[in-house]
């Protein structure tokens, strides 16, 4: 895998930047250049809050090549507060206690490393929302 392939996605992956259709208001993550709802090509960057809840999840016991280092791990469909769904891993969580509807927040973590020099690809994962400091 080439470096530019991941580099060009970095900001979107670190900050959950998607798009908003200026014509019909539909939000998209990942970012799009054509709105599938109204076909408008007039879109702007949209910053998602990142907070959401688990829509569904799985625990991966048989990972694809390159992800063995964190097995077993949970992956989920996260329904963001804005209504869009994002696919991501869950982290910092008890695999036994996950459930649909659980509130989660995003963190930037190592997704995987590749090549002889072990270039690290970072991106978002989600974790159960930590209790606020008093």
């Amino acid at each position: 895998m080439s470096v530019p392939r991941h580099w060009r996605e970095n900001v979107k992956r670190y900050r959950l930047l998607g798009s908003k259709c200026k014509s019909c208001g539909k939000l998209h993550y990942p970012e799009r250049t054509v709105c599938p709802q109204c076909k408008s090509r007039d879109l702007e960057t949209f910053q998602f809050s990142g907070n959401g809840k688990i829509y569904s999840f799985t625990i991966v016991w048989s990972p694809p090549e390159g992800y063995e280092f964190c097995k077993p791990y949970a992956a989920a469909l996260i329904e963001l507060d804005e209504g869009e769904i994002v696919t991501a891993q869950l982290t910092d969580c008890d695999l036994e206690k996950l459930e649909i509807g659980m509130p989660v927040e995003p963190v930037v973590r190592k997704l995987f490393a590749y090549g002889e020099s072990g270039i690290i690809v970072y991106g978002y994962k989600f974790r159960p929302i930590l209790p606020k400091l008093k």
């Binding site: 996605e9 990942p30 829509y55 569904s56 999840f57 799985t58 991966v60 048989s62 990972p63 694809p64 390159g66 992800y67 964190c70 791990y73 992956a75 989920a76 469909l77 696919t87 991501a88 891993q89 649909i100 997704l111 995987f112 690809v121 991106g123 994962k125």
Partner: peptide, 26 residues
Amino acid sequence: SDREYEAIHGISFVGLNAMIMRRYMH
């Protein structure tokens, strides 16, 4: 699946179907 926004998160193809399955059961 979408390599950049699904598979990159280490979600196997079985994993994607497992999430569909859990939601269906729910």
